[in-house]
Nucleic acid binder design. Structure first.
Lengths: 227, 227
DNA sequence: TGTACATCAGTGAACGCGCGTTCACTGATGTAC
DNA sequence: TGTACATCAGTGAACGCGCGTTCACTGATGTAC
């Protein structure tokens, strides 16, 4: 699975890197990403601060790694759902509703991880572009599900314009040059609408209003297929 | 307009408070809310750090004030739109599309202000509940517009369940005990879906994909009325 | 199997910085007679 | 109008803390002959 054979030192290095990231996530879960501190992580691991510079060039590199891992984790969750649907006796592909549940569970599992990807941008930090490969894996699964539901074509003028626009800019969709525009539009709606409910839920806006987040989420999922 | 007559000292106090908040917004616009620093604000005003403690008990109180002002500003924008629609020769109330544009312009005017309200929660900080009064002013305008469009009743099972749920928990809607459930549902969809597109736009996810945010936003607005 | 050397993990001290907040104090502004 | 007093804005020093990061160094682990 791992490419070349690892020397013991390499193995050890990787273990420590993993432990650093693990502690980093704990810290983010407690105080958010902007409070991430290398010194605090080192202390928690029983090491001195400068020791971490053997493993990460600086704070930004660690954050980049965390972001990459987070995207990887979400993509894996989507791919696993696709694999399970293909393997199981049911349909060939996971339905939109299934992917929606995967997304919501993944987000609830660690809200700060979700916010690291989709929340307020970390000030002074800009993510590298090498995550686009991972996000298009994710979009591919989503697009398959969208195409499978046979979405209705656009009904309004703006929706039609969006379909044309998406057909012209489909780089984000990865290796799907064949996806029909209505499927592209549905995928985008999935992403943006579910992000809407989810982030309001995770930020606590619904509970502050006495509303049930799960129900609101499910209704948005239902509405996706309806139009 | 202002209740009691102000002594010169009171007037001066309020001016300084305003200037502090102004610099605070500039700082937030530059580095985000979690980097807000009283000392830095003081320095920018040509004062020493401790001087600010004459005006704000501590950092959290300043943030609370900023959040309150931000809600106030958004509510005022909505109320102004309502007043303009009532005064103008047109319809009695601003349409949903009009309010949507107000929301988007308000957000683009200062993205960090938007994120302070609707983005990743500030770690270790919890907003007080005295903003609910302001938010229900906002919701009232929105509900009027929703009721005026005569929204269709729910079509799916989940949507119907949401309408029932919202009818049972309508405290957030302020002084609108009479709003029909479909209007409540439409208002919630307005809020959550537009928050979805808007926050993705403001976080730069669309430009990273080569997509046109304004078009996507308008399509979501169009879809609101369609069902 | 044993020795000489290179590699590398981790330490401790240091640099320069900024933070929120408290406290005793100065000096200007307003108030009361 | 003038004087005595109270109020209050702002200062500077200090406390204790944490941050990212560099650097010279020690000591353990691996490698080559």
């Amino acid at each position: 699975m791992t490419g070349a054979t690892q020397t013991p030192r390499e193995r050890y290095r990787q273990q420590v890197r993993e432990e650093v990231k693990e502690k980093a996530w704990q810290q983010i879960a407690g105080s958010g990403a902007s409070a991430l501190s290398l010194n605090a992580i080192a202390k928690q691991m029983g090491m001195s601060g400068p020791a971490l510079y053997r493993y990460f060039a600086n704070r930004d590199e660690l954050i980049t790694e965390l972001i990459r891992d987070a995207y990887r984790s979400l993509a894996d969750a989507f791919l696993a759902a696709a694999a399970a649907a293909a393997g199981g006796g049911g349909a060939d592909r996971p339905g939109l509703a299934g992917l929606a549940q995967v997304l919501r569970r993944w987000a609830l599992e660690d809200p700060h991880r979700y916010f690291l990807l989709y929340g307020t941008p970390v000030p002074g930090y800009h993510a590298p572009q090498d995550v686009t490969g991972i996000t298009s894996e994710l979009m591919s699964v989503l697009l398959d599900a969208c195409a499978a539901t046979g979405p209705a074509p656009a009904r309004g003028a703006k929706s039609a314009a969006v379909e044309g626009h998406l057909a012209d800019h489909r780089e984000w969709a990865g290796s799907h040059p064949d996806a029909p525009p209505p499927a592209l539009r549905l995928a985008l709606a999935f992403w943006s609408r579910l992000h809407g409910v989810l982030s309001l839920e995770l930020a606590g806006h619904f509970t502050g209003m006495g509303l049930d987040p799960a129900l609101l989420f499910e209704a948005e999922v239902e509405a996706l297929s309806a139009g």
